[in-house]
Simulated assay, not measured.
Amino acid sequence: MDSTLSTVGLPVALGVIMFGLGLSLTVADFTRVRRSPRAVAVALLCQLVLLPLVCFGLVLALDLSPVLAVGMMLLAASPGGSTANLFSHLFRGDVALNITLTAINSVVAIVSLPLVTNLAMAYFDLGDEASLQYRKVLEVFAVVLVPVVLGMVVRARRPGFADRMDRPVRAGSAFLLFVIIAGIVADQRENVGEYAASVGLVVTLFCLASLVVGYVVPRWAGVSDRQAVACSFEIGVHNATLAIYVAVEVLDSVELSVPAAVYGLVMFLVAALWGVALTRWILPRAAALPSQHA
């Protein structure tokens, strides 16, 4: 990837996205877990345990190359992002719960992301080529969390400004993600067709599986519909920019970032279609069930 894009563009894109996330967060979001302990616990179980297992099964079943398989596992270990909150809002989820899950997942990922990625590297025998050391991960998350804290400070002191900036920052984040993905495609233009054929199906299946697991498992656990919708988008919409940043800047591999880049394009369409399915068919049917048994 072009050095300017990787050394400047990626950190800036990640910083803008995480600052925008911080503009929507307050300290109360980290403590609200006491109000919905079951929903938070089930969502974390899905995020930290079920999704890596689902992703691992998919990469084995579809026989991905070791590098792309590890790239998929890196994506699976990445937390949700601000885009998840937007989808939750659009499709009638519990946005307060969604924001709480995003806040908690972003912190938990400091441990879970390197753990899952290193296990994948060991399994697919990439340990000699790259390693995700906790010290370097802490540096990455310092870069991630500082903009979040700054955004939270701005929201605490200037809530009106934070509200006004919400939409422009989201739009800017989407644009920067597009630029990063375009840069990866340009850098890997000779292999774009091969990569699309290799990871297009697995990325689509993983995105859909994440969204479905994020809704079905919480519903089985007795979580309300609105909370399950929030869990679905939090679990199903990953922070692709973070995964790309770790792949390119920490692991020094553009090829590792390909699954996240493809996911960044596919995710918007899959999540939107899933949201439509939720609001038009799944949620109305679930609401009708009690009356059918009455």
Rank of each mutant, 00 (worst) to 15 (best):
A186Y: 15
G160K: 08
W274T: 08
A162M: 05
S88N: 04
L45T: 15
V254W: 01
V54L: 11
V276L: 14
A103E: 02
R189H: 13
P52Q: 12
A272C: 10
I17M: 09
S106C: 13
T117L: 06
P147K: 09
V49D: 06
V146T: 13
S36G: 05
A228P: 04
V179W: 05
V262I: 05
F56L: 15
L53F: 14
A61D: 06
F91E: 00
H238N: 15
S6D: 04
V27Q: 14
V154N: 01
I235E: 00
P218V: 04
A260K: 04
L208G: 03
E194K: 08
A41E: 01
P259N: 03
A196V: 13
I104H: 04
S257Q: 07
T83Y: 07
R35T: 12
W220K: 12
A96L: 12
G193Q: 03
L269D: 09
A77N: 06
E255C: 03
L68S: 00
I104C: 09
V107W: 06
W274R: 02
I235C: 13
A243G: 12
E190Y: 09
I180V: 15
V179I: 08
S257D: 08
C46E: 13
M1Q: 10
A156H: 11
V12T: 09
V33P: 03
A182S: 11
C55E: 07
M1G: 14
V12E: 03
D63L: 12
L10C: 04
E129H: 10
A286Q: 14
R155F: 12
V27F: 12
E249F: 07
V270H: 04
C231Q: 05
A96V: 15
V192D: 05
V179R: 02
F19Y: 13
G127N: 12
T279W: 06
E249P: 01
V262C: 01
